[in-house]
Design a binder for these strands. Sequence first.
DNA 1: CTGAGCACCTGAGGGC
DNA 2: TGCCCTCAGGTGCTCA
Length: 273
Amino acid sequence: MPELPEVENVRLGLAQMGLVGQTIEKMVWGGQKLRRPIKMSDLGKIAGQTVVQLERRAKFLIWQTADFGILSHLGMTGSWRAFRRSDELLKHDHIQIYFLSGLQLTYHDPRRFGLFEIMPKAKLATHPWLTNLGPEPLSENFSGEYLFKRGRRRDAPIKNWLMDQKQVVGIGNIYASEALYRAKVRPARPVGRVKKVEADAIAQAVREVLQEAIAAGGSTIRDYRNAGGEAGAFQKTFAVYDRAEKPCTACATSIRMRTFSGRSTYWCPKCQV
DNA sequence: CTGAGCACCTGAGGGC
DNA sequence: TGCCCTCAGGTGCTCA
């Protein structure tokens, strides 16, 4: 489900609710494993800890307390919702975090592709989930030049390369198609055959699409909700994603779809070269 | 090493 | 109504 704009909106929402500064009373896990089992012993250690920092890196949410780091990845269908304490649980609610203030956070994830782990703070920096990640697409470290240089002699379709978190993080199936449409480059083009000017256009398009999607509250196809339970709005302005056979908004040509490594991919055969 | 395919899960929606 | 099939915002493993 969530790509960078959705995770960023969850982070913003949690920050606005004042998560930083809240003290954890207890954490409860329902027992169903996500992508990996959650270590029960870790949950007990977190009681009494105060959240001092909330960040996003790639598609991970990172919480820090004085002594611990908490990593959360939403997978395809994960969401955190915040509300005043209540014992009412929905199906697929897996983790509850109770705060002394009365705030409660619940992790909900029907498909259970998400990840959740608590670790001593010192282990955060070297955690395997956070190593081998490419640059943040909205940082200076991601540019057309970076794409052009790193993509040389690579044969993978540019679309797959953009989704590879080792190359650049945060871009998933929706925003890869949307960014390539804006950059006017076909998704099947091998990265190694992307020209420098095109690489510049792609990097710029990635930044624009992600920033606009963040501002629109992310994209909601079915599951995504922010921490307040609200859907995003960026799906209303998709140029190509999920628009197979519909007219291109620029030239009216029928939008084409095919799968790349098992993922549906959309483009305009006339606007994109 | 690279790239492709599949596995991991549940639920929604379409065809019959 | 119900069954069966396909598909879904991700990623990690295996295999050629």
